[in-house]
Amino acid sequence: MEKSTARLGWLFASPYLIYSLIFFLFPLLWATYLAFTNWNLISPDYEFVGISNFIEAFFSESVRAAFFVTYKFLGMFVPIAVVGALMLAMIIHTLPRFKGLFSVAFFLPYLASGVASAIVVNGVLSYNSPFNIWLRGTFGLDIDWLGSSILAPLIIALMMAWKFAGYYALLFVAGLESIPKDIYEAAEIDGAVGFKKFWYVTLPMLYPSFYTVTILAVGLMFGIFTEPYVLTGGGPDLATHTWQLEIYSQAFERLNAGYGTAIAVINSIVTFGSILVFRKILEKWGARHGWE
């Protein structure tokens, strides 16, 4: 009976496993192979070039920029998105009525097209937008929002936080709902009130949600494309140049698909490594609060 149950388990898992095999594992292996070639995506002929694509990528200024820019985005986006999502979740959680309605409302930006929202942001921040005219007229402030290497990544990070905070908030809401009331009661007996209750009970008890949200947010930063593509094109001076922009530019604009794939392989290794580091940090924090 145990054997047949196991077989049934495999059977039900098989659609996803087969899907992953076809759409993830096979492309990954194929991409790894292509990374060692000079294929341009359209020519029937290509050659094996060893590790030269990887060496070229290692010395490339734009690849280096993509590496550091991603961590810059990560440093801006993850705290903003996680804190924003947590605040939204707390608001939704404390609402006496219409929790579902508000959850959906906050989730809506997640469904918005990246291109459309980037165009809107572009319009709002344009030189002659009412907002900038007001800033110039009232305070004499003439800010080049997307031309500044500090402000441009911050704007993209804020845009993405706006888009994803509602989605992450749903995960936090689920976490908040699952915290047993008696823990709060016990904490109150021990004298925990107000912020202390939040700090010593809610936050540690939300560890599973934190874990999921943080890992999702970290992973997201390694795949940013649409927002910088539409808003800044990777500029100014590569300040918003992401891995995906570099891969796209190499593979589809310059037809260096082999080289582009090598960058994609490096990107996946960096992503994997970074997520691993964040996992370890989070697990340590979780273990300190009793989550093994």
Partner: peptide, 14 residues
């Protein structure tokens, strides 16, 4: 030269 994004600058006379 205005090298910042602007909405319809020619049409608005900017």
């Amino acid at each position: 030269l205005l090298t910042r994004e602007a909405t319809d600058p020619f049409e608005s006379g900017d």
